[in-house]
Deep mutational scan, measured.
Amino acid sequence: SADYSSLTVVQLKDLLTKRNLSVGGLKNELVQRLIKDDEESKGE
């Protein structure tokens, strides 16, 4: 998976916004949300 932890919070929020995901929470939560979304989209 992508190394989201190396991105800035601003970059993470931009990715979340593009996916229509919540941008609330700490950086670690944003990273986990993106990883979870990646895993769910692979399952389709």
Rank of each mutant, 00 (worst) to 15 (best):
S1F: 14
S1N: 12
A2C: 14
A2M: 14
A2T: 13
D3C: 15
D3R: 14
D3N: 10
Y4S: 00
Y4D: 00
Y4P: 01
Y4G: 00
S5R: 10
S5A: 13
S6T: 10
S6N: 12
L7R: 03
L7T: 01
T8K: 05
T8N: 07
T8M: 04
V9Y: 08
V10G: 12
V10L: 14
V10Y: 08
V10R: 14
Q11F: 05
Q11K: 06
Q11D: 06
Q11A: 07
Q11R: 06
Q11P: 00
L12F: 00
K13N: 06
K13W: 07
D14S: 12
L15P: 00
L15E: 08
L15H: 04
L15A: 05
L16V: 03
L16F: 01
T17Q: 13
T17F: 11
T17E: 09
T17H: 12
T17I: 12
T17A: 15
K18I: 08
K18V: 07
K18H: 08
K18D: 06
K18L: 10
N20W: 05
L21E: 02
S22C: 09
S22R: 08
V23W: 06
V23P: 08
G24S: 15
G24A: 15
G25C: 04
G25A: 03
G25I: 02
G25M: 02
G25E: 02
L26F: 09
L26K: 13
L26R: 12
L26P: 10
L26C: 09
L26D: 15
K27H: 08
K27N: 03
K27R: 10
K27Q: 06
K27S: 04
N28E: 15
N28D: 14
N28L: 09
E29F: 04
L30T: 01
L30W: 06
L30N: 00
L30V: 02
V31K: 04
V31Y: 03
V31W: 03
V31G: 00
Q32I: 07
Q32A: 13
Q32L: 11
Q32M: 12
R33T: 04
R33P: 02
L34C: 02
L34T: 01
I35P: 01
I35R: 09
I35F: 06
I35M: 11
K36L: 10
D37E: 04
D38V: 04
E40L: 12
E40F: 09
S41E: 08
S41G: 10
S41A: 11
S41R: 15
S41Q: 13
K42P: 07
K42W: 09
K42N: 10
G43P: 10
G43D: 10
E44C: 15
E44P: 12
E44D: 12
